[in-house]
Simulated assay, not measured.
Amino acid sequence: MSTRIADLDPGGAPLLGEPLPVEFANTRYAVRGVPQEGLAEPEHLAAWLRDIAPRLAGPPSDTALLAVDAADLAAALDLRECVAALLRATMTDTAPAADVATRLNAYTRAAPHWRELTWPTASTRTEAAPIAAVLAELASATIDLVTGPDRAELRPCHGPGCVLHFVKNNPRREWCSAGCGNRARVARHYQRTKNAPRI
Protein backbone atom coordinates (compact mmCIF):
# COMPACT_ATOMS: atom_id res chain seq x y z
CA MET A 1 0.00 0.00 0.00
CA SER A 2 1.46 3.38 -0.95
CA THR A 3 1.72 6.26 1.52
CA ARG A 4 -0.72 9.10 1.06
CA ILE A 5 0.28 12.68 1.85
CA ALA A 6 -2.68 12.99 4.24
CA ASP A 7 -1.40 10.00 6.27
CA LEU A 8 2.06 11.40 7.05
CA ASP A 9 2.92 11.59 10.76
CA PRO A 10 3.34 15.29 11.66
CA GLY A 11 5.81 14.60 14.50
CA GLY A 12 3.98 16.75 17.02
CA ALA A 13 5.44 20.18 16.22
CA PRO A 14 2.92 22.91 17.06
CA LEU A 15 1.54 25.30 14.46
CA LEU A 16 0.44 28.49 16.16
CA GLY A 17 -0.14 30.87 13.25
CA GLU A 18 3.15 32.72 13.77
CA PRO A 19 5.31 33.99 10.89
CA LEU A 20 6.85 31.03 9.08
CA PRO A 21 10.40 31.50 10.45
CA VAL A 22 9.00 31.40 14.00
CA GLU A 23 6.86 28.36 13.17
CA PHE A 24 9.96 26.68 11.74
CA ALA A 25 12.10 27.41 14.82
CA ASN A 26 9.22 26.18 16.98
CA THR A 27 9.46 22.69 15.47
CA ARG A 28 11.88 22.13 18.34
CA TYR A 29 9.56 22.42 21.32
CA ALA A 30 9.05 21.13 24.87
CA VAL A 31 6.36 19.13 26.61
CA ARG A 32 6.29 19.77 30.35
CA GLY A 33 9.81 21.15 30.08
CA VAL A 34 11.17 18.10 28.25
CA PRO A 35 12.70 19.02 24.85
CA GLN A 36 11.02 17.42 21.83
CA GLU A 37 12.07 17.16 18.19
CA GLY A 38 9.20 17.79 15.80
CA LEU A 39 11.32 16.99 12.74
CA ALA A 40 12.93 13.73 13.81
CA GLU A 41 12.17 11.90 10.55
CA PRO A 42 11.89 12.91 6.88
CA GLU A 43 8.18 12.07 7.16
CA HIS A 44 7.79 14.73 9.88
CA LEU A 45 9.38 17.36 7.64
CA ALA A 46 7.12 16.35 4.74
CA ALA A 47 4.03 16.57 6.98
CA TRP A 48 5.09 19.96 8.37
CA LEU A 49 5.62 21.28 4.83
CA ARG A 50 2.22 19.85 3.86
CA ASP A 51 0.62 21.70 6.76
CA ILE A 52 2.24 25.07 5.94
CA ALA A 53 1.79 24.71 2.16
CA PRO A 54 -1.14 27.18 1.98
CA ARG A 55 1.18 29.85 3.41
CA LEU A 56 3.99 29.28 0.88
CA ALA A 57 4.44 31.21 -2.36
CA GLY A 58 5.66 28.03 -4.03
CA PRO A 59 4.23 25.02 -2.18
CA PRO A 60 5.74 21.65 -3.08
CA SER A 61 3.60 19.04 -4.81
CA ASP A 62 2.41 15.91 -3.03
CA THR A 63 4.91 13.95 -5.11
CA ALA A 64 7.77 16.16 -3.89
CA LEU A 65 6.59 15.84 -0.28
CA LEU A 66 6.40 12.05 -0.50
CA ALA A 67 9.99 12.05 -1.83
CA VAL A 68 11.46 14.03 1.14
CA ASP A 69 14.55 12.15 2.25
CA ALA A 70 17.31 12.24 4.86
CA ALA A 71 19.32 14.82 2.88
CA ASP A 72 16.29 17.15 2.78
CA LEU A 73 15.83 16.69 6.51
CA ALA A 74 19.52 17.41 7.22
CA ALA A 75 19.30 20.63 5.17
CA ALA A 76 16.08 21.66 6.94
CA LEU A 77 17.60 21.06 10.38
CA ASP A 78 20.68 23.09 9.45
CA LEU A 79 18.48 25.93 8.22
CA ARG A 80 16.32 25.70 11.36
CA GLU A 81 19.47 26.04 13.49
CA CYS A 82 20.32 29.24 11.57
CA VAL A 83 16.78 30.58 11.91
CA ALA A 84 16.69 29.88 15.67
CA ALA A 85 20.09 31.54 16.15
CA LEU A 86 18.92 34.63 14.27
CA LEU A 87 15.69 34.81 16.27
CA ARG A 88 17.65 34.55 19.56
CA ALA A 89 20.13 37.18 18.39
CA THR A 90 17.28 39.49 17.41
CA MET A 91 15.46 39.05 20.74
CA THR A 92 18.63 39.63 22.78
CA ASP A 93 20.00 42.38 20.51
CA THR A 94 23.26 40.49 20.03
CA ALA A 95 25.14 39.32 16.94
CA PRO A 96 24.75 35.68 15.88
CA ALA A 97 27.79 33.48 15.29
CA ALA A 98 29.75 34.56 12.22
CA ASP A 99 28.74 31.59 10.05
CA VAL A 100 24.97 31.85 10.64
CA ALA A 101 24.28 34.55 8.03
CA THR A 102 26.58 32.83 5.55
CA ARG A 103 24.74 29.52 5.93
CA LEU A 104 21.31 31.18 5.72
CA ASN A 105 22.33 33.12 2.60
CA ALA A 106 23.43 29.88 0.95
CA TYR A 107 19.84 28.63 1.24
CA THR A 108 18.41 31.78 -0.35
CA ARG A 109 20.92 31.57 -3.23
CA ALA A 110 20.14 27.88 -3.83
CA ALA A 111 16.73 28.71 -5.31
CA PRO A 112 16.61 31.92 -7.32
CA HIS A 113 13.00 32.72 -8.13
CA TRP A 114 10.93 35.02 -10.27
CA ARG A 115 7.28 35.92 -10.68
CA GLU A 116 5.31 35.10 -13.79
CA LEU A 117 1.94 36.26 -14.91
CA THR A 118 -0.52 33.38 -15.19
CA TRP A 119 -3.57 35.39 -16.14
CA PRO A 120 -5.41 36.60 -14.17
CA THR A 121 -2.98 35.88 -11.31
CA ALA A 122 0.76 35.68 -10.79
CA SER A 123 2.83 32.77 -9.58
CA THR A 124 6.34 32.32 -8.24
CA ARG A 125 8.65 30.13 -10.30
CA THR A 126 12.08 28.60 -9.68
CA GLU A 127 14.26 25.99 -11.31
CA ALA A 128 15.35 24.65 -7.93
CA ALA A 129 14.24 21.30 -6.57
CA PRO A 130 10.94 21.64 -4.64
CA ILE A 131 12.31 21.22 -1.11
CA ALA A 132 15.30 23.49 -1.82
CA ALA A 133 12.81 26.09 -3.05
CA VAL A 134 10.80 25.87 0.17
CA LEU A 135 13.95 26.14 2.30
CA ALA A 136 14.97 29.21 0.27
CA GLU A 137 11.56 30.73 0.91
CA LEU A 138 11.90 30.08 4.66
CA ALA A 139 15.39 31.60 4.64
CA SER A 140 14.12 34.70 2.79
CA ALA A 141 11.20 35.03 5.20
CA THR A 142 13.68 34.89 8.08
CA ILE A 143 15.68 37.74 6.57
CA ASP A 144 12.46 39.76 6.22
CA LEU A 145 11.45 39.03 9.82
CA VAL A 146 14.77 39.83 11.53
CA THR A 147 15.31 42.99 9.49
CA GLY A 148 11.69 44.17 9.31
CA PRO A 149 9.25 45.97 11.60
CA ASP A 150 8.22 42.81 13.51
CA ARG A 151 11.78 42.22 14.78
CA ALA A 152 11.06 44.33 17.87
CA GLU A 153 8.03 42.17 18.65
CA LEU A 154 9.81 38.78 18.73
CA ARG A 155 9.49 37.21 22.17
CA PRO A 156 10.28 33.97 23.99
CA CYS A 157 7.26 32.37 25.65
CA HIS A 158 7.13 32.86 29.43
CA GLY A 159 5.11 29.69 29.98
CA PRO A 160 6.63 27.21 32.46
CA GLY A 161 8.98 24.89 30.58
CA CYS A 162 8.10 26.36 27.16
CA VAL A 163 10.87 27.01 24.62
CA LEU A 164 8.72 28.47 21.83
CA HIS A 165 8.83 31.96 20.36
CA PHE A 166 6.11 34.27 19.08
CA VAL A 167 5.54 37.71 17.60
CA LYS A 168 3.81 39.87 20.19
CA ASN A 169 0.76 41.09 18.26
CA ASN A 170 -1.10 42.26 21.37
CA PRO A 171 0.32 44.48 24.15
CA ARG A 172 -0.84 42.03 26.84
CA ARG A 173 0.44 38.87 25.16
CA GLU A 174 3.22 37.07 27.08
CA TRP A 175 2.77 33.47 25.92
CA CYS A 176 2.92 31.51 22.67
CA SER A 177 -0.55 30.05 23.24
CA ALA A 178 -3.53 30.12 25.58
CA GLY A 179 -2.34 26.78 27.01
CA CYS A 180 0.97 28.29 28.14
CA GLY A 181 -0.87 31.28 29.59
CA ASN A 182 -3.11 28.96 31.60
CA ARG A 183 -0.11 26.96 32.87
CA ALA A 184 1.62 30.19 33.92
CA ARG A 185 -1.47 31.39 35.82
CA VAL A 186 -1.87 28.01 37.53
CA ALA A 187 1.82 28.03 38.53
CA ARG A 188 1.50 31.57 39.98
CA HIS A 189 -1.65 30.58 41.88
CA TYR A 190 0.09 27.49 43.25
CA GLN A 191 3.06 29.57 44.44
CA ARG A 192 0.76 32.09 46.17
CA THR A 193 -1.30 29.43 47.92
CA LYS A 194 1.73 27.29 48.81
CA ASN A 195 3.40 30.24 50.53
CA ALA A 196 0.25 31.66 52.15
CA PRO A 197 0.11 31.49 55.96
CA ARG A 198 -2.24 28.84 57.33
CA ILE A 199 -4.95 30.03 59.69
Score class of each variant (00 low, 15 high):
175 W>C: 00
21 P>T: 12
115 R>V: 02
13 A>K: 08
86 L>E: 12
24 F>D: 09
182 N>D: 04
190 Y>G: 00
68 V>R: 03
189 H>D: 03
14 P>Q: 11
18 E>V: 06
92 T>I: 09
90 T>C: 13
5 I>A: 13
69 D>W: 08
150 D>E: 15
144 D>G: 12
26 N>F: 13
43 E>V: 14
5 I>W: 07
185 R>D: 08
52 I>T: 07
39 L>R: 06
124 T>N: 05
137 E>F: 05
34 V>P: 00
179 G>T: 15
165 H>M: 08
117 L>N: 01
75 A>F: 07
16 L>R: 15
1 M>Y: 00
188 R>M: 09
16 L>C: 04
74 A>F: 09
16 L>I: 04
146 V>S: 02
119 W>M: 05
57 A>E: 15
49 L>D: 03
175 W>Y: 07
51 D>G: 02
84 A>D: 14
16 L>H: 13
143 I>W: 13
154 L>Q: 12
42 P>C: 09
40 A>E: 07
173 R>K: 06
53 A>M: 12
101 A>S: 04
83 V>D: 06
98 A>K: 10
185 R>C: 01
157 C>D: 09
167 V>Y: 02
163 V>T: 15
143 I>R: 12
156 P>Y: 11
68 V>W: 03
70 A>D: 13
14 P>S: 07
139 A>M: 02
26 N>C: 12
172 R>F: 00
113 H>D: 01
129 A>S: 13
104 L>A: 07
71 A>H: 09
11 G>R: 09
128 A>P: 03
168 K>S: 01
142 T>D: 01
172 R>M: 00
64 A>N: 02
109 R>H: 14
130 P>R: 10
199 I>H: 14
25 A>N: 05
70 A>M: 06
164 L>P: 00
30 A>T: 11
88 R>N: 14
38 G>M: 05
61 S>C: 04
96 P>Y: 08
50 R>G: 03
133 A>Q: 01
9 D>K: 06
147 T>G: 11
60 P>H: 14
184 A>C: 06
108 T>V: 12
185 R>Y: 04
165 H>R: 05
164 L>G: 01
120 P>T: 08
74 A>H: 13
46 A>R: 10
145 L>E: 02
155 R>Y: 12
108 T>M: 11
121 T>I: 08
87 L>E: 14
65 L>N: 05
184 A>R: 10
23 E>N: 09
181 G>N: 12
138 L>W: 07
139 A>E: 02
9 D>E: 07
43 E>Q: 14
